[in-house]
Simulated scan of single mutants.
Amino acid sequence: MNRDQLIATYEQQLNRIQGNRMYSDHAKKVLSAQAYKKAQEGLETLRQAELDSLARQRTQLQRRMFGTTSSSSDPNAVIARRDANDRAARLDDPREAATALQRAERDGDTVLAQAIAARASEWGWTDVLDTYAADRPGFVRDVEEWNALPDAEDIGWKLGHTAQFIAPTPPGFDGAHLASIDWYAQQSLDSDEPAPVVPSIFGGEAA
């Protein structure tokens, strides 16, 4: 079930609860709060799944661009990659990186060339990256795909993404603090315990 389907099912459930004349106002609040909690749990699961999928996409692209997609257990290959990463990490000037990349390409050292390109990407050395990409159309496509992905660390994107996975407030709780919904979700349908006084998000008190 996707986000839209989950919210549609939740809203249909709320409508059925509100339209049932057999329920008291208290019972309607209890059932609506329980429906909200369940819907919100489902939405949070979907939100996290999207973040996990995005992280996997980024990891796969990084491996295609700067690493290896194989799971080789060859110790020589592991040592070669580690050595290449160490050598690239010592580069702190784009001119040195460009020279090192040219030498690696000339020697056919693909692993070192990848490590240098990764270093250039970290430091924003676009000239070095352009040189690396010149004869690698696959790399260019991967970069374009990477750039098309949202930045999960961007605060604005985080807020917007999170807002998409918040269930609508159930009837009777408009302006209420989430603590009020939590309290009702734990009550029995025929409970006569008075609801706690919780400050409204708009000021004043909310039942």
Rank of each mutant, 00 (worst) to 15 (best):
Q186P: 05
T126E: 14
A27S: 15
Q12S: 13
S188K: 03
A89C: 04
A80G: 00
D86W: 06
R47Y: 12
T169F: 05
L46K: 01
L129T: 04
Q34F: 13
L54H: 09
A195Y: 10
D52Y: 03
Q186R: 04
G108E: 08
N20S: 02
T9R: 14
G19P: 06
T169S: 06
E50K: 10
N15G: 10
D52E: 10
D130I: 00
R106C: 01
T131P: 00
L6S: 08
D109I: 11
G203R: 01
D127T: 11
E153F: 08
S72V: 07
N2H: 08
Q34E: 14
D74V: 01
F202K: 02
Q40L: 10
S73V: 12
I7T: 04
G204K: 05
A35P: 12
A80Y: 04
L159V: 15
G108Q: 02
G19S: 07
I7L: 13
G124D: 08
Q57H: 05
I181Q: 02
A206C: 11
G42M: 05
S70C: 11
A195S: 14
Q57F: 10
T162S: 11
A97W: 11
E153Q: 11
R87Y: 00
A104E: 04
S188L: 05
F165G: 04
S200R: 09
G124A: 08
L91A: 09
H161D: 13
T9C: 00
I17E: 02
L112W: 00
F139N: 04
E105V: 01
Q164R: 14
Q60V: 05
A120F: 06
G175T: 02
W157I: 01
L43M: 02
L51Y: 13
D182Y: 09
G160T: 09
I79K: 11
T69G: 05
T68S: 15
P196L: 06
Q5A: 13
H177M: 05
S121Y: 13
V198E: 07
L91C: 07
E41A: 15
A115D: 00
L159E: 12
T110G: 09
L129I: 12
A118N: 08
T9S: 11
D182S: 11
A104S: 05
N147P: 00
E105P: 02
T99H: 13
A33F: 07
D142P: 06
R63G: 02
A148G: 03
V143P: 02
K37A: 13
S121I: 04
Q18K: 10
R103F: 10
F202H: 14
L46P: 08
V143Q: 07
A98D: 11
A163D: 14
Q34K: 12
F173G: 02
D109Y: 06
T169E: 08
S191V: 09
D4F: 10
A113G: 01
A207K: 14
A207L: 10
D4N: 11
D25P: 01
S72I: 09
S73I: 13
I166V: 15
D92I: 06
Q62L: 10
G203S: 04
D135Q: 14
